[in-house]
Design a protein around this nucleic acid. Structure first.
Length: 134
RNA sequence: UCAGACGGCCGGGCGGUCGCGGGCCCGAAAGGGUUCGAGGAAAGUCCGGGCUCCACGACGGCAUGGCGGCGGGUAACGCCCGCCGGGGGUGACCCCAGGGAUAGCGCCACAGAAAGGAAACCGCCCUCGUUUCGGCGAGGGUAAGGGUGAAAGGGUGCGGUAAGAGCGCACCGGGCCGCUGGUGACAGGGGCCGCAUGGCAAGCCCCGCUAGGAGCAAGACCGAAUAGGGAUUCCGCGUUCCGGUUCGCCGGGACAGGGCCGCCGCCGGCCCAGGGAUCCGGGUAGGUCGCGAGAACCGUCCCGCGAGGGCCGGUCCAGAGGAAUGACCGCCGCGUUCCCGCAAGGGGGCGGCACAGAACCCGGCUUACAGGCCGUCUGAUCUU
């Protein structure tokens, strides 16, 4: 099992705006943004569904599904000290659950790889990096 | 049995694993336990209230918005119930923006001769002239008929007439005035008036009633960083008059200017009016409250035709704040589809399976809604 680190919800509008300029990765029905905070080993996650998704029912469902996916996958694939924002895209409510999990997982892995690659000295790697999917 | 009218209700169920938000309990904490956790429309934000802050000086006038048969219900309503009137339907029932059109202005397209104190296109009738005896022309009468139109100046019948016409009469319609019944809207009946006086008020308008404004991002409290307010002080300080003066200005009086209280009038009230330094209080980010025991819900009984009201007993029923009610699995139900079967039926696949997510709270209205259930009634048809 990976390292245990606390996961909190992102609630301030300013945090969301800051993440909007961070690197992002779109996979299937979701778009994930990741932003480094250079702080304690804490992961924060926020969820957004715009009006383009549909009415209130559709938007709530999209957020709940993304939240459930994040609950299952973040402990394995998140980097401590990062804020993640999940943005629902078209079809986020209709996509089969397995496919939605794959979308989120591959997006998280891709973001982790991008963080690792370009600047090595940016942040000292923790004891164990994100585990590749098995 | 079929077709239909009206009213009411439900709107997936059970179980398991992992999670989420609130309350309570245990614990030093980490955490654990327990319990509750979306709708009939939570929606649109269209009305009415509660609650909160602001504005609230009185009088007169003006302006603006809303409502509009009558009587009830209600905290209130533009809602609901009952009734009246009009219209539709064989019927159960349904529909009505339902005050005033002899207070006034305005409009009535197209067609039509004429669209509101009317009008002669085709007709009809009379007189005169003319005639090739078919008619034709001129003058006049006439709104019964044709034609136009959404609508043609009451309708039908009889009389009357040259032909016609409320010209006369009867009935219906209309207006005015009593009477009777009804709380009332109205209804019934009587007398008088032959009766130019259509429609649109959802064009303006008139009448009556009624109405402050904004909204929980209301508002209250606690409160960082940075930029703006109050007190003191220094410099400065409109016009004019008087006095003083160390010529820097100072003191007193009068007059002003701008803005606000919906507008106007009138009296009235309030606020503002330069720059620098020192000190002190507000507000923003953020946090806490507001934030759910109520015009509450359930049940018996009583009053009322009904909307609804009352007594008693019982229940506690979401409170988030980037916003909790979710993910997956099994069985059943539902829909759809395929296979086997003569049939009854059996088996399988697919489908998060109607509309839709609380955001201060209630009462309504409106709109959306797969499928299904119950009750009352009507019209046919069949059987007895």
């Amino acid at each position: 099992m990976p390292d245990a680190f606390p996961i909190e919800r992102l609630k301030k509008r300013a945090d969301f705006l800051a993440c909007a300029k961070a690197p992002a990765c779109a996979r299937g029905a979701v778009l994930v943004q990741a932003r480094s905070r250079d702080e304690a080993a804490l992961v924060r996650a926020g969820f957004t569904a715009t009006r383009r998704i549909g009415g209130a029912v559709e938007r709530s469902r999209a957020k709940r599904r993304m939240r459930e996916a994040a609950r299952l996958l973040l402990p394995h694939h998140a980097r401590p000290g990062f804020d993640y924002v999940f943005i629902a895209r078209g079809g986020a409510t209709k996509r089969p659950w397995d496919r939605l999990l794959d979308d989120v997982k591959s997006a998280l892995i891709r973001l982790a790889a991008d963080i690792e690659a370009p600047s090595v000295e940016a942040s000292p790697p923790p004891s164990a990096g994100p585990r590749p999917p098995t």
